[in-house]
Amino acid sequence: MAEPPDHNHDHHHPEGAVRLDYYEAMQLAVAELLIEKGIFSADDMRREVEAMQARTPAKGAAVVARAWTDPAFKAALLKNGTAACESLGIEMGPTHLVVVENTPGVHNAVVCTLCSCYPRMLLGPPPDWYKSRPYRSRMVREPRAVLAEFGLRLPDSTVLRVHDSTADMRYLVLPERPAGTTSLSEGALAALVTRDCMIGVAVPKAP
């Protein structure tokens, strides 16, 4: 098990593999024991896996597109992110959402240096790089260099605000609506909003 840091474990077991990974066996054993003890049911577990699969960046993109097209919603979103998302019927669970707005001259980006806090209810589980040692280490110290590695070069005149998600809040970046999109529908606008735009390592582009 001598793997280098940031090694990505894939755990792809081909059909008919005969070896069960140690931690997979632990997961199966713990789940079985908890179900037998009545802590939760197998159905609870299945429903939770399905709910996780249903959480994708499309939810966050829909929130952004609504904010771009409805000024009252945008004001509500910036004031109380959780309540505004719930008003769109999005299940937010225990999440306290803070929405940070990009404006001409201000760019926001999100990191969690201590673990990997992330607005999962709106974006699904985080990508591997968000949880990696390089991103978590460098994003607070040399964020402009990190953004450049993602292909985003900010002019010096732009204020860069990094948000280290250290405690109970979760952060979503509200990107700027690209120029030349006035004729687009809300759905077409949402299609421009990628996950990375809502983390703040990219900006949306007009089609």
């Binding site: 940031d6 990505n8 894939d10 755990h11 792809h12 990974d21 931690y23 997979e24 997961q27 199966l28 713990v30 789940a31 908890l34 577990m45 939770e48 896996v49 996780m52 699969q53 990191v111 240096t113 201590l114 673990c115 589980p125 990508p127 591997d128 790089w129 990696s132 040692r133 390089p134 991103y135 978590r136 280490s137 460098r138 607070v140 110290r141 990190v146 590695e149 993602f150 280290d164």
Partner: peptide
């Protein structure tokens, strides 16, 4: 775990589809 500001290499834009056992850990 407290790595903010430490030197590290380039961010590799890796991602993978979570395996079922990983989703089950999350659900648990």
């Amino acid at each position: 775990h407290d790595m903010g500001g430490l030197p590290a290499g380039p961010v590799k834009p890796n991602e993978h589809d979570y395996a079922m056992w990983e989703r089950q850990v999350d659900a648990l």
